[in-house]
Design a binder for these strands. Structure first.
Length: 467
RNA sequence: GUCCCCUUCGUCUAGCCUGGCCCAGGACACCGCCCUUUCACGGCGGCGACACCGGUUCAAAUCCGGUAGGGGACGCCA
């Protein structure tokens, strides 16, 4: 193990969304690539909004993607005494002070500042205050350095410099005594000896404040890497109104974890012209320096393509297992039908998602209860009946069972009767599946079995005969 | 409003640091053709971008300056 230590630190106020998943992925990749340590930390200092359900949902999402962590999960709510200790340290050193301004006063000042076109930062009313009114509620503020600049070399964005004038004295402890985010993050990252902080772009502005805190506390400052956000098709920050954002929702829509991972890793990162990455390849090739600096738009089409790729090349046995919940959702049971693995094999090249595959698999288990009339209408009644009779006879009198043999049988029928394949295949396809979109005839018959095939043809014969 | 960041095909991106091999490459999507018993898969081809304006240079997507547009942050949320 190298000295590299990274962490993913979600706040449990919702499920794991794709943006968070990508941040976690980049952390995980860097750790794996460098032989470092990946830590999971739950930032639940906001007691009001944090829930156990969210924690579970986040862990579930990470496990599904296979983003296993080496240490944790640690909960910030377990470290309150630790934060308090450091707040006191800062207070004792004169690097923090008590502020007695009320939220209402602050809000009012902020509003006025905004209206006057000034930056709405704290005006420092209590910064030099010497009296300490007993019994008065107060917050603790960090005494930020005045003048000069705070800069850092972001691994993704390059050097970023902030004039200290822009930073105000941030609150590190609330009236109720609980610590605030920017403070906890610094204490945790420092005490967990995090060497590289990889997080969302929206934290760039917090970074200089945090650096000042590291310095005031005498901690070494870690390296930072801010990954750009993921946008919706309208270029606005990705949110529910753009569709699904939850990782688990993608699982439920029939996406494979390796497909989502592959999609996410290519969103903002690239390795030459490569598109397909196995876990091993992405680990081996990942380089945080190759992550792009600009935001990227989430594109479901490309995810679909990747998912189709992984379904096409996936192990039928595994896919069959993953397909089960999507089938039961449709009240399909596979007990008395063809082997699910064989079914999967006939559908692998035709499905972009497991949902789609399940939809296409239904007919194997539930015989059609109606037929595509428009498709049927393209053939004469006499031809239809002749085809059904010929196929029934041919199948019943032949021992053929595999796809190639059965296809051969259909070719025989065509040459014997002078029919074109389209005249025979399509009616049979309708007979067996009810519609026109299905695997090859040979595949269906081989999978369904001759007996069931003949039974279904008999049924459609009756249907056509009375028309 | 202030500060910070970003800007190559519709989308994801390569190239940019170390100017010329780029009248810009790949992928998704789209369109066409081929394959074909349907739907797909696959194969081949097409469409399509250096935000804009100046400067430096023999030469700029690449370096410099400005403009415009977009995003983010500005909370006793994280």
């Amino acid at each position: 193990m190298s000295e590299l230590r990274v962490r993913f630190a979600p706040s449990p106020t919702g499920y794991l969304h794709v943006g968070g998943a990508r941040t976690a992925l980049f952390n995980w990749l860097l750790a794996k690539n460098k032989g470092g340590t990946f830590i999971l930390r739950i930032e639940d200092t906001d007691v009001e909004r944090s829930t156990k359900e969210s924690v579970d949902a986040i862990l579930e999402g990470m496990k599904w993607l296979g983003l296993e962590w080496d240490e944790g999960p640690f909960y910030q709510s377990d470290s309150f005494p630790l934060y308090k200790e450091y707040v006191q340290k800062l207070l004792d050193a004169g690097k923090a002070y008590k502020c007695y301004c009320t939220s209402e006063e602050l809000d009012a000042k902020r509003t006025i500042a905004m209206e006057e076109g000034r930056k709405p930062k704290y005006d420092g009313t209590c910064r030099e205050r010497v009296d300490q009114p007993a019994g008065q509620p107060y917050v603790v503020r960090f005494r930020a350095p005045k003048g000069g600049v705070t800069a850092f070399d972001d691994l993704i964005k390059g050097t970023i410099t902030f004039p200290n004038e822009e930073l105000d004295d941030l609150i590190i402890q609330r009236t109720d005594g609980t610590p605030t985010y920017n403070f906890c993050v610094v204490i945790d990252d420092a005490t967990m000896r995090i060497t590289t902080v990889i997080r969302g772009d929206d934290h760039v502005n917090n970074t200089p404040r945090q650096i000042q805190l590291y310095e005031a506390l005498g901690f070494p400052v870690p390296q930072f890497a801010h990954v750009p956000m993921i946008l919706g098709s309208d270029k606005a920050r990705l949110s529910k109104r753009h569709g699904a954002t939850s990782v688990i929702a993608y699982r439920d829509m029939g996406y494979l974890p390796e497909a989502l991972m592959n999609y996410l890793v290519r969103l903002g990162w690239s390795h030459g012209d490569d598109e397909i990455f196995s876990r091993e390849e992405m680990i081996q090739k990942f380089d945080i320096g190759n992550v792009g600096r600009s935001a990227s738009v989430f594109n479901t089409e490309k995810l679909n393509w990747l998912n189709a790729h992984y379904i096409k090349n996936g192990d039928p046995e595994r896919l069959a297992a993953l397909l089960l919940p999507h089938l039961s959702k449709r009240r399909v049971t596979t007990r008395n039908g063809p082997d699910l693995m064989s079914v999967v094999r006939t559908l692998q090249e035709r499905a972009q998602t497991l949902e789609e595959m399940a939809e296409r698999a239904v007919f194997y288990y539930n015989p059609p209860t109606s037929y595509d009339d428009a498709a049927l209408a393209k053939f004469d009644k006499e031809l239809l009946l002749a085809v059904f009779a010929a196929v029934t006879e041919k199948l019943s009198s032949s021992p053929a069972t595999d796809t190639a043999e059965i296809d051969g049988l259909f070719k025989e029928i065509c040459s014997e009767k002078g029919w074109k394949m389209g005249q025979v295949g399509q009616p049979i396809r309708i007979a067996l599946s009810g519609g026109t979109q299905a695997p090859g005839i040979g595949e269906i018959v081989a999978t369904l079995g001759v007996e069931e095939t003949v039974r279904r043809i008999q049924r459609v014969r009756e249907f056509v005969a009375v028309k």
